[in-house]
Every structure is written in C-alpha cells, then in structure tokens.
Design a protein around this nucleic acid. Structure first.
Length: 311
DNA sequence: AAGACGAAAGTGGTTGA
DNA sequence: TCAACAACTTTCGTCTT
C-alpha cells in the first residue's frame, strides 16, 4: 500500500463521507480509500504505471518496451516491421538451413509489402528526397519532420498530380524553413536540390495557396545571425548589428526592402564600428546580393541614424 | 592596387486594369 | 494579357586609402 497525491479528477473534494482530504491510493485492491473513516472513494482504479518494477535506471531502460517514436520522415511513419539480415535466432544461434531460406522469403515479401501501391511509392521516394536535401543543407531534424508532414498533407489533398515530386519536396522544405524561422533563402535551397529557383518558387506559392498556410515575411534579424556566423565575427558585432536593425525598424527604414540587403548592410556597419572590418564584397558574397545593394541600404541608414551611440 | 562610391541601363517578378 | 512599377543587379568609370 502506498500513499500518493490523487489526481483531482478522481477525488473531487476529499472524502464524500467525512470530508477528510486524507485519501490513499491502494493499488493492491484497486481502490482509493479515506484514511479517516475507511470510505472507498473510487473502486476499480486503473494503475497507469508499468506492470513491472525497476530499481535503477538501467533496469528501467531494459524493461521498457516502447520503441522509437513515430516519425513523419519514413513513409509508414517507421511503424512497420523490419526483418534483419543476421540469420540468427533470439539466442544468437545461427539458423538451420531450411529456416534460413524461409526467413529469406519472409524478408523479401516484407520489403515488397512495405511499399505497396503507387501512392506509397511516391511518398517513399519523396521523403527520401527530402532527407537528402535537408542533409545537404545541414538542416535540423525538426525541419525534416515539418517538411515531411507538409508533403504528406500535399499528397493527401491530391496536389502532387501533374507536378514534379522534386519541385514539391524542395518547396516543402522551404515552407518548413520559413515556418520554423530558419534563415535559408530560396537560392540556398534550390542549390541543394536539382530544381531551379523559379520552379521552387512556383511550387512554394502553390503549396501556400492550396494548403492555406500563412507565413510571415522573413525578418532581417534572422539573417544577421547567419551572416555573422559565416563571416566568423564576434558576438559583439552581431549584438550591435541587431541594435542597429532595431533602430532602423523603428524609423521604418526596413519596410519594402529585401531582408538580406538590410541584414547585410547592418552587418557591414557593425563590422566597421567594431573595427572588425569586412569588405562589402565579402558580405555581399555571403548574403548573395551585390555590393551596390549593400551601399544603397548603408547610405539610407547612415543618413537617418547616429552610430556613435552604439559603441 | 584594392576597396568604396555612384550613375545609368537592364532584369525578373508583382500588380492592377 | 499587358503595361507600369519598385527593388535589385550589372557594368563601368572615378575617387580614396
């Protein structure tokens, strides 16, 4: 018998008989009992814990039977059975000859069944495609999951027919990046896939429209972090860049301008202010814009802001 | 000599009739 | 479907460090 705090759903206001709040959960008899008058508050209690006991972390690990979490990146969500290729039984002994052949046939059919019809094949191909691109770009796992989910949704709505799988997969990754606030340009993403930027943009707009997604425009701040990292600049530079951006936003100098251009100009100014000077060309190259654009933004900012305050 | 600056013409995509 | 449009790019000559 052990005493535990009772969830409120089970014991509304203590004991209905004597009003005492001292209740006890008794898993042996599956009841909640009042400790003062002995009234049985709840009978037929369900034990929500595991039926086994573990005395340390290792045992808990060993006895838990839940598997890997379901994932959207495998076409059957990772829930199907895989027969391994070791040809050994549960004790690690080699299988006798006859059974080996049987297991071989089972394995073959298991593989065939896993990807059964055309939709499944499409999905399996697309999801492996998404993984490839996400790996190319070193994207975090949540982007991969999100993109896979978006693609699934597109398949469910029948949006794939008549357009290329690769176009839609690449677009799905772009949508995922935008949703999760990961700063990647269309350019970045189309370079890591066999699809042209134009095609990705088209599929992207299509997905947004059909799936009713609303995505906020990218903020320049997201790119500042990226640029400063790629330029190997100190945290101080990034900090100042963000401050300048904040001031520029207040003065409405950022609206209607490309976010990469703003971020690049702000990073440039910050690099000059801190003495960790980078050339316009260096930054332009990383930001995938021209020096001229940096100069134009830079000029607008210098005209309206006073920079001495940031140092 | 490299980098910064700026003028002028060109480009690709969006918007609204 | 087409022209107008804004943002950005390309190109190139000049100035600055």
């Amino acid at each position: 018998m052990k005493e535990e705090n009772i969830p409120p759903s089970l014991s509304p206001r203590g004991c209905p008989e004597c009003g005492s709040s001292r209740l006890m959960k008794d898993y042996e008899s599956a009841e909640i009992v009042c400790m003062d008058c002995g009234y049985v508050v709840v009978a037929q209690l369900t034990d929500q814990g595991p039926e086994w006991r573990a005395f340390d972390a290792e045992q808990r690990e060993k006895r838990a039977r839940a598997g890997a979490p379901a994932t959207f990146t495998i076409h059957d969500k990772g829930l199907s059975t895989t027969i391994d290729w070791h040809d050994r039984d549960i004790h690690g002994q080699r299988l006798p000859h006859g059974q080996k052949a049987q297991i071989y046939r089972l394995r073959k059919w298991q593989k065939r069944i896993r990807v059964s019809d055309a939709t499944e094949r499409n999905l399996a191909f697309a999801l492996s495609e998404i993984s490839k691109i996400a790996n190319n770009l070193n994207l975090p796992k949540n982007i991969l999951e999100t993109a896979s989910m978006i693609y699934r949704k597109a398949v469910e709505e029948g949006l794939i027919r008549g357009r290329s799988i690769q176009g839609v997969t690449t677009a799905a990754i772009y949508v995922a990046c935008r949703q999760c606030g990961v700063a990647r340009t269309l350019e970045d993403i189309s370079q890591a896939s066999p699809v042209s930027k134009k095609e990705v943009a088209r599929s992207y707009r299509f997905l947004l429209k059909q799936l009713d997604y609303f995505i906020k425009p990218v903020k320049p701040g997201q790119y500042i972090t990226k640029f400063c990292n790629q330029l190997a600049m100190q945290g101080k530079v990034e900090e100042i860049a963000h401050k300048i951006l904040f001031a520029a936003t207040e003065l409405k100098l950022t609206s209607g301008r490309g976010p990469t251009g703003i971020a690049a100009a702000v990073s440039y100014i910050a690099s000059v202010l801190t003495g960790e000077r980078k050339t316009q060309r260096e930054i332009a190259e990383i930001a995938q814009i021209t020096e001229v654009t940096i100069r134009n933004r830079y000029k607008e900012l210098v005209e309206r802001l006073q920079f001495t305050i940031y140092l």
